[in-house]
Structures are given as structure tokens and as C-alpha cells.
Design a protein around this nucleic acid. Structure first.
Lengths: 235, 235
DNA sequence: GCGTCGTATCGAACGTTGTTCTATCGTAGC
DNA sequence: GCTACGATAGAACAACGTTCGATACGACGC
């Protein structure tokens, strides 16, 4: 689609984009080096065009982020809709939440922007709807249903934000592994006064080398059993 | 503490700060207009000094944010330690979580930075310890205790992030109230296809004019009942 | 009194960011 | 061909975090 122009002045090309390509490359940048890597200049270079051209597709960086987020949430939504489904709505809720969480594990930057603006994020709304539909199968009031879905999304986002924060550079360039980094923290904790920090000492071994997915699963399970009790259904 | 100097050249003053004053003014800026308002230039102007002076107290903006966050978490910790305490550790956990959440309601910017870096945030670690101590009174494994506290913190952060995002400017300058803004969303939702969005229609009235604190309380209650069941204690 | 050292301060500059301005190209319709 | 419009792009702008070098101040030795 790109064309030659102005052969006399050296044959500079004009780039020809599309909403799709802009979003795809934006997501690629986010995937490769996280949120700070997505700048208009980096994106323009990748698209082989000028900085200002991006503003034809998008009014601001906020909108770019929203659209990029919604773009990948679309894939998550497809995964969720492809889920088999069972006779237990709570099992289905768990499967959906795990699917969403897995997507955020693959793309840590998602955590910060997911569900920020349902206006420009139509796929997020659809996902929200899908989660909510499972609560329609439970014996709850509308009030309880609303809060149940909020709670589940809250658990996902809460866990995701924990992992979403940029690792401290030393870990990004591979100078130290994640295990080393956690271990360093654990060591500092072990040197605290056991009288003053009995709990920290109790769990320091659990913290050292812990798995984020386990942590999320446990948190999710607590809310789900709470929800199950509230709905009065048998496990 | 400020002194006069160089009277001959017009009597320009030299400002004299302290870690305390820097942090206090930084928090004041955050409180007044949110995270984007805290810039080194704005802070310097408020302190009546130069921009570079702040770098004597702090090595980067990240450290400034960490220290400012820990500064106010110190007050939260004091509130938590002032809590009466009961014979039910889960009741105490709830009271602590609510205290923390209330602090974030007052200072929405807290949500984004709380628990980001326990290295420079000693008060956060103390708060984490205080929460964990309650789980020591429950019949749980160390593994379960670790996950329980993570879950509770996750619920707080998850709810806080929801509210922590900057309102879209129209609401900041008072052009539209929060109720109007929510109502606009609700109206858009009501116009969706009821066949395709049954859940959204079910809860749109709950969403319209909903209270963030209620939402948080419900989510917290679900995890707490889940935890209670896990510990096998009677309510 | 004078020089020196460490603490503390500040103006100016640098590089990068999001955003806007203005000018341009290429194609489709007349 | 001319025009209107969709699309592109370079240059400039303001604001930001950060760094540099110079400078002031109080305390100390002498």
C-alpha cells in the first residue's frame, strides 16, 4: 500500500497505516518492554511514518492505551467464550477469572489499564457481562450480583497490579533473576526482630520463591467460597 | 530558618527545607490535585526554593513517591494500632482493612503507590505485619496465612485502584457531579440490547449511584467468610 | 581574622515526552 | 485538469524528570 513519491528528492516513502496496524504495533511495543516503551515516537518509527500521523487514528495517548487494551481483551473474551461451561456457575466463574488472569500474566501491562474506561473498551464490557451472566444462575439479589462481579474483578485486578509493576531494571536486563530478587527481600525480612515481626517471620519461607498464580488462585478461592455460601448452593 | 543573603544584588532569599517539610508539601500537592500535580517544579515553588534542592533529600521521583506514601501510611498504621481489638481475629481483620480503605478513600492517589516497594516503605511493612498477626490467631498453615493476608490486601488494592483513577476532568472542575457521570454511563448501558446484555440490565440500577465503600465492604466480606470457613472457626 | 571543608541551595541546561500547527501528498469524483 | 478530502509528516511547543556547576552558609582548625 505504500507508494513512492518525490523520486527527485531522494525517494522518501509515505507510510500508509490502519487502525489495525497501529494497535497491533502498539501492543507489540507494550509486550516487548512494558508500558514505558509505548511512546508516540517509538510507535511512529515502527510504523515507518511520522509522529503526528498516529493522531489521525487516536486523539490522545489515553485513547491509544484504551484501544490497545480493548484490542487484546478481545482475544481474552474469545477465550472465555470458548470455555466449555459446566453445571456449576461458580466453577465457570473461576474458569473465566483464571483465563483473564492468565492473560494478564502474559501481558503484565494489562493490569494497569484493564477496566479503566468501559466507554472506549467495548470488549471489557462484554467480558464483564459474561462474568455477570454466571451470577444470574445463582440465587442472589441484583445488589449481590453486582457486588459479586465487582469482587471477582477486584481480586483479579488486585493481584494483577501486584505483578504489573515494572521490575526494578536489574531484573529486566537479566542481572538478577526473580528468585534472587525475592530472596534478597526474604533475607532482609529474616533479619528483622522476631519479637516485633512474628508474622513476617512466620511466612518468610512462603514468600521466598512464591508463585503469583498460586497467590491469585487462593485469593480467588476465598471470594468464591464466600460467594457460594451467600448463594446457598452446595459445592 | 531562612536567611538573607546578597543584599546588594536584590536580597534574594535562600530556602531552608527538611525531609519533613518536603514530604508534607508533597503530600499536600497529592491531596489537592492528585498524582499528576506532584511535579518537582510545583513542589519547589511551594517550598520557596529551587528545583534541584529537592534532589538533596531524594534521589528520584520514585523515591519521593515512596517516601510520601510511607509518610501517610504512618498515620494509617497509628489508626490501626489504636483500634480496640476483639476476641474475633476476623472482626479485627475487617476493622483494619476498613481503616486502610477509608484512608485511601480520603487520598485516592494512595491506591496506586501503596505496597509498591516495601524496601523504602517501612510503615507499609509494619501494617502488613499487623494484619498478619491476626491470622496467627487463626487455625491455619503458614501457607494459608500468607495467602490470606495477600488476599485481603488484594481486595483493598483492587477496590482502591478502581477509585484511584483520575476522574475525567469534567468531574474535577465540578462541571458534572459524580452522580451525573455515573448516570450517563448507566443510561448508555440501558440502551444496550437486553438480549445480548442481560446482566448489565439486571444491575444497571445498582450501578447507578452506587457507593464505592459498599462495594468494597461486600468484596471484603466475601473473602472474610471464605477465610472463616477455611479456619473452621464459628462466626 | 582567614582558609577549608561538608552541608545545603539554586539557576540553567539537557533529553524525552505528549501534543499542536501547518504544509503537503495521493486518490476519487466531477 | 481541477477540486475536495482522506491521510501523512516535519517542525515546533510546553512540561516533565534529571544533571551540572556554581555558590552560599556554618563550623572547625589555626
Amino acid at each position: 500500500m505504500t507508494r513512492l513519491q518525490n523520486r527527485a528528492t531522494g525517494g522518501r516513502r509515505r507510510a500508509s497505516h490502519s487502525m489495525e496496524s497501529v494497535l497491533t504495533e502498539a501492543v507489540a511495543l507494550l509486550d516487548e518492554a512494558g508500558a514505558p516503551a509505548l511512546t508516540f515516537r517509538a510507535l511512529a518509527q515502527r510504523l515507518g511514518g511520522g509522529v503526528a500521523s498516529i493522531y489521525w487514528y487516536v486523539d490522545s495517548k489515553e485513547e491509544l492505551l484504551d484501544r490497545a487494551t480493548d484490542h487484546v481483551i478481545g482475544a481474552v473474551l474469545a477465550d472465555v467464550e470458548r470455555l466449555p461451561g459446566s453445571d456449576d456457575p461458580i466453577d465457570d466463574l473461576r474458569a473465566m477469572a483464571v483465563t483473564l488472569f492468565d492473560a494478564i500474566v502474559d501481558r503484565p501491562w494489562l493490569g494497569a489499564y484493564f477496566m479503566r474506561n468501559t466507554e472506549a473498551q467495548s470488549n471489557s464490557l462484554r467480558l464483564y457481562e459474561r462474568l455477570g451472566q454466571q451470577t444470574l444462575r445463582l440465587d442472589l439479589t441484583a445488589h449481590q450480583r453486582f457486588h459479586a462481579v465487582s469482587a471477582i474483578v477486584g481480586v483479579v485486578v488486585g493481584s494483577a497490579v501486584d505483578m504489573g509493576q515494572e521490575p526494578p531494571a536489574e531484573i529486566l536486563d537479566g542481572a538478577v533473576s526473580r528468585e534472587e530478587f525475592l530472596g534478597r527481600f526474604a533475607q532482609a525480612w529474616r533479619e528483622l526482630d522476631p519479637e516485633e515481626y512474628p508474622f513476617v517471620h512466620e511466612i518468610v519461607d512462603e514468600f521466598d520463591g512464591h508463585d503469583d498464580v498460586d497467590q491469585f488462585r487462593s485469593a480467588l478461592e476465598l471470594t468464591l467460597t464466600g460467594l457460594r455460601l451467600q448463594a446457598g448452593t452446595r459445592p
